[in-house]
Amino acid sequence: MKLVKVCGMREATNIREVEQAGADWIGFIFYPESPRFVHEVPDYLPRKSKRVGVFVNAPKEKISETISLFGLDLVQLHGNESPEFCENIRRSGVKVIKSFRVGDEFKEEEVEPYHGKCDYFLFDTQTSLYGGSGEKFNWETLLNYRGNTFFLLSGGITPGDAEALKTFSYPKCIGVDINSKFEISPAVKDAKLVKQFIKVIKNPGNKIDNKTLLI
């Protein structure tokens, strides 16, 4: 694993702490139904970590406005956005991540039309929600993924998954997306836990200190 995205950030001090903990990408959720909804620009935004804006079926105008306001590097589309819509957002000069919900079986036919229209995919757990369920899916289903688009693994990843993630090997998986299982409260992350998790999955010789596994 080379890349760690920490999603659902909102508080300035916590954003700075998570960036210093080593997060490669930091995600901001612009979906009003989410308890991690960002309704205003924080006093601090990442300077080293890439800024990712998460949207669910938002109009292009709103996404474009937010890209400019927050200086976003990537846009993550978590709704029912079409391949054409993804390509259109991509023309704004940002990279596009399209999220897909994975159930008991991996459905290649759902992702196939998006190849070449997005920069990355994100595979999350299939629930009635648009992500953020805190539930995990069977990672082995991704062995049926035949595409060439690189992806991030998401869905209920916990600090205790660090050891398993060190052995998770798939050539198109570039990293993980963590969120609720690292939280003290909605949108507030335990930066020490994030830091240790990152160290473990990026450095095979390290191990998780069980005393810190409070979640």
Rank of each mutant, 00 (worst) to 15 (best):
E65C: 02
S68N: 08
G155M: 02
E110C: 12
K95Q: 14
F100R: 07
P113F: 14
W139A: 07
T141P: 15
G53P: 01
L213C: 13
F182K: 01
S99G: 13
F30Q: 07
E112A: 13
I201R: 01
S169H: 11
D119F: 11
L45S: 07
L122P: 00
P42G: 10
C7P: 02
S82E: 11
P83F: 09
I29V: 14
E109I: 11
V200W: 00
K50W: 04
D124M: 04
F28T: 05
E110T: 10
F100A: 06
G175F: 15
G156H: 06
P171M: 13
G79W: 00
F123H: 02
L72Q: 08
R16F: 13
L213H: 06
V18L: 04
N179M: 05
E19Y: 04
I208H: 05
K166S: 07
F55K: 00
R101V: 07
Q76H: 11
S185N: 07
F100G: 09
L3T: 08
R16T: 01
F30T: 10
Y120E: 03
G22A: 00
G93H: 04
I198C: 04
R146W: 01
L142S: 10
N179R: 03
T125N: 06
E135C: 05
E110D: 12
F182P: 00
P159G: 07
K50Y: 07
G132R: 03
E109N: 11
H115I: 07
S128Q: 08
L143M: 09
Y114W: 14
L74W: 06
D177V: 08
R146A: 13
N14A: 11
P171K: 15
S99L: 09
L153M: 09
